[in-house]
Simulated scan of single mutants.
Amino acid sequence: MEINNIDVRNYPGSTKTYIEGKLHDIRVPMRRIDLTPTVKIINGEKMMHENAPVYVYDTSGAYTDPDITIDINKGLPRTREKWLSQRDDLEQLPGITSEYGRQREADKGLDSIRFANRYAPRRAKKGCAITQMALAKQGIITPEMEYVAIRENMNNDKLGIKSHITPQLVRDEIAAGRAVLPANINHPESEPMIIGSKFLVKLNTNIGNSALSSGIEEEVNKAVWSCYWGGDTLMDLSTGDNIHETREWIIRNCPVPMGTVPVYQALEKV
């Protein structure tokens, strides 16, 4: 199965830009909006004052980066793959281990709709707690934590504007249970973001197929446009056919954290 690439362009009047991390080797995307000059008439003479660009939070991922070639059939760049490979608390499995997953893999009738690029899953090594909260409680500032601190600052630090949102604050809030940083180790395409009372308000969007309508291509389109228009997180509420395969396509092309309601898929199984 092949899906036509989605024609998502950069936002008019803005440019994709990146801010480098200081603690980790990370690049945090921002959208730079160029402002028109302020024009005033003083003593009959037109005076123009240039305005500095404004940097804003950008959820569109690689889709608006002109330097990255997007191919829906191959999936997005795996932004966090390098960070995960450097951790000593994770291990990579040789393949899918769940009984249901192996059944789907063995079903040749699904080959025509299966996502072509397959990735072996990771899991925690025995005895290791691997969540961002567990790491925060150990006093560790992860790349994900620095990433969201930079995102939440929206370039203030680079402009010399002192901000209370620092990597240390992010760690403190997560460790205390006042914030959550969704960072599924098997969804490295997702860019880190944070939800909590001391951080920017976030928007969640819901998509999903049904037994009556919508297929894989339509659901991927929904996911892409959700991220383009500012959705911070995505919920797949599919209740129709081939949820397992549909979700794999969405995850591999989704630059934001994604959740689901397992009971919906349980209904498809029975």
Rank of each mutant, 00 (worst) to 15 (best):
11 Y>S: 02
24 H>W: 15
30 M>Q: 08
31 R>D: 02
37 P>A: 07
47 M>V: 14
53 P>Q: 09
55 Y>P: 01
56 V>P: 00
58 D>I: 06
60 S>M: 06
60 S>Q: 05
67 D>Q: 10
69 T>K: 15
71 D>W: 09
72 I>T: 10
80 R>I: 01
82 K>M: 12
84 L>P: 10
86 Q>H: 09
87 R>Q: 09
93 L>C: 02
113 I>Y: 04
113 I>N: 07
115 F>S: 02
117 N>E: 15
124 A>S: 08
130 I>D: 00
132 Q>T: 11
134 A>E: 12
137 K>L: 05
137 K>W: 01
149 A>E: 07
153 N>P: 00
156 N>C: 12
163 S>Y: 03
165 I>G: 01
169 L>P: 00
170 V>F: 01
174 I>P: 09
180 V>K: 07
182 P>Y: 01
184 N>M: 13
186 N>T: 00
187 H>T: 02
189 E>F: 04
189 E>I: 01
201 V>T: 15
201 V>D: 15
201 V>E: 15
202 K>D: 01
202 K>R: 15
202 K>Q: 08
210 S>H: 08
212 L>M: 13
216 I>T: 12
219 E>R: 05
222 K>R: 14
224 V>P: 00
227 C>N: 10
233 T>S: 11
240 G>V: 00
242 N>K: 13
259 G>L: 04
265 Q>G: 11
265 Q>I: 08
267 L>P: 00
269 K>Q: 13
